[in-house]
Simulated assay, not measured.
Amino acid sequence: MTSSTALLAPARLRPVNPLAKLGAAVLVSGPLILTIDWVSAAVALVLVLAVVPFMGVGWRRFWIRTLPVWVAAPLAGISVLLYGRTEGTVYVEWLLVRVSDGSIALAVATLLRVLAIGVPAVVLFISIDPTDLADGLAQRLRLPARFVLGALAGLRLVGLFLEDWRSLELARRARGIADRGRVRRFAGMAFSLLVLSIRRGSKLAVGMEARAFGGSERRTWARASPFGGREFALLAVGAAISTIAVTAAVLTGEWNFIGAR
């Protein structure tokens, strides 16, 4: 049973238009992609962590959802540490491995950069509902309704594909053919899933055509996709975080534009 706290956790972000969440993620991560320095990444990460309690995402939910980012960031940093730029004093040298002042600085910057880009993106995507996103893309960005609805229908089928895969695996186990030949079994199950997907896709296409989803007339929408003060406030927060991070990097002389490398 889901607790009432968990149900209410993402409620603050849920009324915000998904396009504003995507825009805020771009505003935060965009400038960080243009530079490799530890100051801008560290400042952005600290500001994002300070804003998390006000975004309606509980800390337990936050750590669970962002765990892959926290795992990937050190791995990226270690690879840069061992094989990155050689500069200054060399501390370890063995075959292709060379740890120096330059590789250490670049590894720290890479680790913080991955966290500063990945964490806000995950936090903002947690509460995005696919239907709300489709409404925003069609009503606000004026994307073709046929493309938006087709993508939404395809996204909704991802869960069914996972269930089909589990059903195929259980069926093969019941017949006693799932205990050996893993590569061959995977290929057979993948082909079976492809056949099921094509059949389900054909039925879905016919059903959507029958409901006039492929019509040439301009569609109406059951739910409005408002974009007002709350959305602009979220965009302002994202712009403020990136501006403060970039300003701190420039003032400390750590700004390292990747195009100048």
Rank of each mutant, 00 (worst) to 15 (best):
R156F: 03
M1Q: 07
W63M: 10
L204V: 15
R60T: 10
A72I: 13
F62D: 03
V52Q: 15
V99H: 00
G23E: 09
A24T: 02
R211Q: 06
V183E: 04
R172L: 01
A187P: 09
D132C: 10
V148S: 08
R61K: 10
V69P: 00
A107T: 00
V119M: 08
L124S: 09
G176S: 03
A20T: 08
F257R: 11
S100E: 06
R113P: 07
W38F: 12
E87K: 06
W70Q: 11
I177F: 09
V39H: 09
I78A: 08
N17F: 10
L157T: 07
T2R: 15
W165C: 03
G259D: 11
L47T: 05
L111S: 08
V71C: 06
F161M: 15
L27Y: 09
T66E: 05
A248R: 02
L204K: 11
V148G: 03
R142A: 09
S197I: 09
G23N: 07
G229Q: 11
P226G: 04
V114P: 01
A236W: 01
A105S: 15
E169S: 14
G207Y: 00
F232K: 13
V52T: 12
W255Q: 13
L196T: 03
I258P: 08
A190W: 08
W255M: 06
L32H: 08
P130E: 00
S242I: 08
R140Q: 10
F227N: 04
S100T: 04
R12I: 02
L133T: 00
R182S: 14
R61H: 05
V26K: 05
T66Q: 11
R142P: 04
F147L: 15
A41R: 01
A105Y: 12
R218M: 06
G259Y: 13
A205P: 02
S192N: 13
Y83T: 07
V158Y: 09
L115R: 00
D132Q: 14
S225V: 01
F125H: 14
P18R: 07
L143P: 05
F54L: 13
A145C: 03
A205Y: 14
R65E: 13
G181I: 08
R61D: 07
V122L: 10
F147N: 04
S3T: 14
A109F: 03
